[in-house]
């Protein structure tokens, strides 16, 4: 394969990636829950420098009234990148990319939200990428799951997401930095926690069927790791409080 302009000599040197990670290793993951006070629920999720913030508004009255569904809540997802999130300023407002990502995230979450519990209402999820360094839709989806839980919206389970890919012929977990621009394959995967149900899948690049199946397996295991962290953080939010306030 011919190298693209600006590509580094190699993306993997001595089995290590440019940021020093091994192929099957995440960047540092950072989770905060309930960071916003006026939203019904909120969460931050970071993969390294990728930084997503999610806020849930609702269930609340849905407008226009004529479009209310008497049997269920209407879930709307709005993914957007802050203008300062990228190295070159991104233009504010909707793009074709943000519209598509909003749609696939909405479809992934539709698997778990008990929309029938809140007829005639709307549940609005606003997802903001404050800093982008690949895997932004995965970070946004993880933040969205946690924000829904924080809002008390009934869900079947947490949806968990991570990216996998292929660079320099090596299969990797959690695509980042130059791997995103110059790798061979980038694939975003989301699963329902602890279940063999894949609810988001987007890939570009060329791989064999065997590699694809390996990547799916890596992504599922990765999602399992993230789920454990998400769950621990949810517990912590409610268990940490008394110690703090008792001091």
């Amino acid at each position: 394969m011919s190298k693209k302009v600006g590509a580094p000599e190699a993306l993997i040197v001595d089995g290590k990636r440019l940021d020093g990670r091994s192929p099957n290793e995440f960047r540092p993951i950072n989770i905060e829950i309930g960071t916003l006070k006026r939203a019904n629920g909120s969460a931050e999720f970071r993969f390294g420098n990728t930084y997503a913030l999610a806020g849930v508004m609702g269930p609340r009255p849905f407008h226009p009234k004529a479009l209310q569904d008497p049997q269920r809540s209407i879930v709307r997802v709005n993914y957007a990148m802050a203008p300062f999130s990228t190295k070159e300023r991104s233009k504010p407002g909707k793009s074709r990319r943000s519209t598509e990502i909003s749609k696939v995230i909405n479809e992934a979450l539709a698997n778990v939200i008990f929309a029938e519990d809140y007829p005639r209402t709307g549940i609005d999820l606003f997802l903001v990428i404050l800093q982008a360094d690949a895997s932004t839709r995965c970070a946004a989806l993880n933040a969205a799951s946690l924000a829904l839980a924080d809002a008390g919206v009934p869900i079947r389970d947490l949806v968990v997401s991570c990216s996998v890919g292929k660079v320099d012929g090596t299969l990797i977990l959690d695509v980042a930095g130059l791997e995103d621009n110059f790798g061979d394959v980038d694939m975003a995967v989301a699963t329902i926690a602890n279940q063999d149900k894949i609810v988001l899948l987007q890939m570009d690049g060329i791989i064999t069927k065997e590699e694809f199946m390996t990547l799916i397996d890596m992504a599922k295991k990765g999602c399992g790791q993230i789920y454990d962290m998400m769950k621990a953080k949810l517990y912590e939010k409610y268990v940490a409080t008394p110690a703090e306030e008792g001091a």
Binding site: A82, P83, F84, S85, R89, L130, Q131, D133
Partner: peptide
């Protein structure tokens, strides 16, 4: 310095109010 991709950034909280400013130069 909360957003490394920005040339400059700041997050300000006044009580529960929260605003982020990001600077980009071109």
């Amino acid at each position: 310095g909360v957003i490394e991709n920005a040339e400059g950034s700041a997050r300000v909280r006044i009580g529960n109010t929260m605003v982020i400013a990001g600077i980009k130069a071109d």
